[in-house]
């Protein structure tokens, strides 16, 4: 459904724009219909930039994004936003504080449903709210500061559902919520996926990614280092960066030392061996500006990994 092909985002910074800041480099992956893909990265990895490029809030410098085979840059925005919507991290910043919370519905109505009669619109809104588990009586006609973070995020999802979207870009949507409400919103995403919605779940939290997604993309400094079926990436991490991430996640029931012991027992042992080069070889490799080869190899079915540079000394 959604495909990114060789997407890069390069900012010109410095005096007179002399230096290049490569926020995203040669990223290619896809989201199929009814699939949750988690995009995992730490700060500065470029994950939010990718989300914004997919939502056309910022243009890509290189590469193409296609939706159902059509280059999105060529689609009229209004039509595109009928299919693809986004929800962001800070619920309190996503709402214009001077308007009531349902103003976000009003905006959609004024662009897409201008001719719809009032009662049909009300039915549609209530249907959307119920689909996200909100009681219309409790959330309509209230100001954003009168609602909780969880309710606000769900309201934003309801807004997106008003439009019959096929893809939702969820950028860190639960990181600012309390633990007890996080899981409810996460379960909501699972329910929506079961109904056929594709979701790009952007997060830094590996446990959330594992819980919610079928496929995982691991991002570091703007490039994909590992990607594939979630089970495979987590159970058998190949890239040293992925292993480092997984080793750092604090678990409730396992100490860090135990996790590290498990990881070091994994195959293939990392000592001095870059899987990428073992399978790919040096020849005809497209390299990025930093000398690191672009592209991924398929280490096993539905499990791809990039070159281990610069995370492993002398591996290549």
């Amino acid at each position: 459904m959604l495909t990114l092909d060789g997407i890069s985002k390069i900012y010109r910074v410095g005096t007179f724009g002399g230096t290049d800041l490569r926020a995203v480099q040669e990223v290619s992956f896809g989201v199929a219909t009814g699939e949750v893909v988690s995009l995992i990265g730490e700060s500065g990895s470029g994950k939010t930039t990718i989300g914004r490029m997919i939502l056309r809030l910022t243009p890509a410098t290189h590469g193409t994004i296609t939706f159902d085979g059509v280059d999105v840059a060529r689609l009229p925005r209004k039509d595109y936003y009928r299919r693809v919507q986004g929800v962001f991290q800070d619920p309190f910043s996503s709402y214009n504080p001077i308007f009531k919370a349902d103003h976000v519905f009003g905006m959609i109505r004024s662009v897409y449903f201008t001719a719809m009669p009032e009662d049909e619109w009300t039915r549609r809104v209530e249907g959307s709210l119920q689909a996200v588990g909100l009681d219309p009586g409790q959330v309509l006609h209230k100001y954003p500061h009168q609602l909780s973070g969880g309710q606000l995020q769900r309201l934003l999802i309801a807004r997106a559902l008003l439009l019959d979207i096929r893809l939702l870009v969820a950028d860190e949507i639960i990181s600012m919520l309390d633990a007890s409400t996080r899981i409810d919103v996460l379960n909501l995403l699972g329910d929506l996926k079961a109904r056929g919605l594709g979701i790009l779940f952007i997060t830094h939290d590996l446990s959330l990614g594992y819980y919610a997604s079928q496929r995982t993309v691991i991002l570091s400094h703007g490039r994909i280092v590992e990607m594939g079926a979630t089970e495979k990436v987590y159970r058998n991490p190949l890239h040293p960066y992925t292993r480092m991430l997984i080793a750092s996640v604090p678990h409730l029931h396992e100490k860090w030392s135990q996790v590290e012991a498990e990881l070091s027992g994994l195959e293939p042992p990392l000592a001095g061996r870059c899987v990428y080069h073992a399978m790919h070889g040096e020849a005809s490799n497209r390299t990025g500006a930093d000398g690191i080869p672009a592209g991924l190899v398929e280490a096993e079915e539905d499990h791809f990994v990039a070159c281990f540079r610069p995370y492993l000394e002398g591996a290549c």
């Binding site: 379960n187 699972g190 959330l208 594992y210 979630t230």
Partner: peptide
């Protein structure tokens, strides 16, 4: 609290 090892498809957590 979701943990690596728990998936929505296998066991739904609740808040």
């Amino acid at each position: 609290l979701p943990e690596v090892g728990v998936r929505y498809a296998d066991r739904r957590l609740s808040g």
